[in-house]
Nucleic acid binder design. Sequence first.
RNA 1: GCGCCUCUAGCUCAAUUCGGCAGAGCAACGGACUCUUAAUCCGCAGGUUCUGGGUUCGAGUCCCAGGGGGCGUACCA
Length: 506
Amino acid sequence: MKNPNPADPTDPTDPTDSTDPTDPAAGPEAADPADVSRLEIPYRFERSHSLAGIIAAFDSLESGVTTETTVSVAGRLMLRRDQGRIAFATLQDVTGRVQLFATALATPDFEQFTALSIGDWVGVQGVVMTTRRGELSVRVDGWVILAQAQRQFPDKWHGLTDPDIRYRQRYLDLWVTEQARSVFMRRSAILSCVRRHLDAQGFVEVETPMLHPIPGGAAARPFVTRHEALSTDFYLRIAPELYLKRLVVGGMERVYEIGRVFRNEGISTRHNPEFTMLELYQAYADHSDIMELTENLVAEVASEVCGSTTVTYGDREIDFTVPWRRLTIEQAIAECSSLQVSLDSPTAELRACCESLGIAVNTSWGSGKMLLEIYEKTAEPNLWGPVFVTDYPAEVSPLSREHRSRAGYTERFEAIVAGRELCNAFSELVDPAEQRSRFEAQAALRVGGDDEAMVVDEDYLRALEYGLPPTGGLGIGIDRLVMLLSDTHAIRDALLFPTLRPDPTL
RNA sequence: GCGCCUCUAGCUCAAUUCGGCAGAGCAACGGACUCUUAAUCCGCAGGUUCUGGGUUCGAGUCCCAGGGGGCGUACCA
């Protein structure tokens, strides 16, 4: 540490030099010895321990012990208990809280220390000790102010409850809402765990464009933006899928991307206009391989991040232990509603079924779309899971390969957990001619007014014509995974800065 | 987008069915206090009651319009 005593009286930059109230030459401006705003802010501070690190290292210290170990710590002052000639304060950093113990004898500029405000950032250096009551503390043998809180912090006990302030001023929420801190630390742990597992299996992380000349890879309304130099509109990507499969054509046999995708659709407890998607593609694999990969990945992440493959979600438990259950769409419908329907059912029967469920049937819908709607209405919200729902109709799966033994179906599956889709995956459609006709069917829907239908991507078709080997692909909504593994029920609680209407008062 | 609910001090909340002087705790500020744990005690200050209209002798409260947020719903992952 360059400057072991931040308040060293021999240090020419010591801020206390300029705040001597007895110095008549200082004039009226030097009136208040406790005015912290006059202290100089250093350019760096060398820290020896995080606060959790202090707790871990001195866990078993008995009451009333003063060690000979000097540490330096930093964080925000969150509580202060002045006691005359001594003072206690609670220092907090992202890892935890430790008490500071200051005395008029041991602490330089004691008066200024007790004038610190709640929320001020301080760096403290001193010996580790326990108080008579046994509270692990750092004695303030030296200290510097690292930043002033010029605005008042929220109530030290109640914190923030207004969701609007919590999301708009996340920088405050993170200090006063313990749960918010833990969710975001866990989110970070989940992401690094996912990457570690995929890397270990030989997957390569890649980055593909976010500005797409043609929106593709999903059915969603895109955001449009403009590149001035090229005089061209671009779309913010709604999925990286088609670029990742181009990379498999290019010989990158196992690729994944974790990144933001953008969909110009509604905001709800489960939807944010920008969200994080994991997509991966594995050459030579089919949907069964991807199912195994998915359940193993999620179970391992749960185990490492939550300590168990069984986690609590709301008032129930989710057991991610492998293998997960598998159900075809028809089986899922039958189990949840006792309706017996499939692609083989007469169209009139499917239509009647939709109408009795209150689903407004569009004339452009085929049997596949009606079957999917029936599934989404009757089964999906009632499946607790985790369960793989398989064999989606080709009509609603324009990028999936036909089922090897069931005509009209594809080798596509979704994992359903807590009544919601966690992932979407399939044996990839590799036949360029078939892909062209699926795109054209989508384009026809688009002409019919469906502005979420896909458009023909000629370059992607050209790539397929060079040859895409058998490939399995997977997309996982990372935000939803974070929600499931952190027991949060609104996506904005899993996002540091959820999309909000701009504050009209700013 | 639609429906319902909500907005009071920096923060958390009060303000008597059905309209009658806008208040408390914490924080801040001044003071006391050598082992506190949301420290305690004394004192002081703090308001465009989201905004704009209206009804009324009188509006935080009732009505209308607008704004922010929440929940549900639709699209969607």
